[in-house]
């Protein structure tokens, strides 16, 4: 009797998980590498984003059928991508937001992701950098973004989630 009750109870608890089962193995991670080039005083950024996720979110922002990284790629693809990245990757030096210079993009070796390259001019004597990186967090609750930042001999990692997606690093 109690066994039957428990079984029903536990099955009822499992139900939402069962329904969500279609998401099995979907992976929601993006990686961003930032490196300071002291000579040109700029931050060189390489960021990797899954193509299918990126298309989904861009189409939510009104950019349908971009066909990113294919022969049929829309002319406006880079414009939309650039605008999205400007919102989702923000780096400030001593409180001042740095502006993006979109360098280009290329598909990853396995063709499931895209690498985007961005350069940001930074004042040479900066004392702190604030990094915000929340790409795709507007698409998935469980999106995780890894940021690796190398500057002035420091090599650090940050793991961002929807609850925590910006951090300030002191360089003085």
């Amino acid at each position: 009797m109690i066994e039957g009750f428990l079984l029903n109870f536990i099955l009822a608890m499992c139900y939402p998980t069962l329904v969500a089962g279609a998401d099995l193995h979907d992976i929601h991670v993006s990686k961003c590498e930032i490196q300071l080039n002291e000579e040109s005083s700029s931050l060189e950024v390489a960021t990797q984003i899954y193509l299918d996720d990126l298309q989904s979110i861009l189409s939510k922002h009104g950019a349908d059928n971009l066909h990113l990284c294919t022969e049929r790629e829309s002319k406006d693809a880079d414009t939309f991508l650039k605008a999205y990245l400007e919102k989702k990757l923000q780096i400030s030096a001593d409180g001042k937001l740095l502006s993006h210079q979109f360098v280009g993009k290329e598909p990853s070796e396995d063709q499931i992701a895209v690498w985007c390259y961005i350069e940001l001019k930074v004042p040479p004597g900066f004392a702190s950098l604030k990094v915000k990186y929340d790409v795709l967090m507007d698409l998935y609750d469980d999106q995780k973004n890894i940021v690796n930042i190398k500057a002035r001999g420091k090599n650090g990692f940050m793991l961002f989630s929807t609850r925590h997606f910006e951090e300030t690093i002191q360089y003085k």
């Binding site: 969500a20 099995l24 193995h25 793991l159």
Partner: peptide, 24 residues
């Protein structure tokens, strides 16, 4: 800022605890 080790350790830990990957 954390070390590379800690970041990937945390990611592994969170991946297991993630209910979306409940097959594990």
């Amino acid at each position: 800022m954390n070390s590379e080790f800690y970041t990937y350790f945390q990611l592994g830990l969170q991946h297991i605890a993630d209910l979306n990957a409940y097959d594990h």
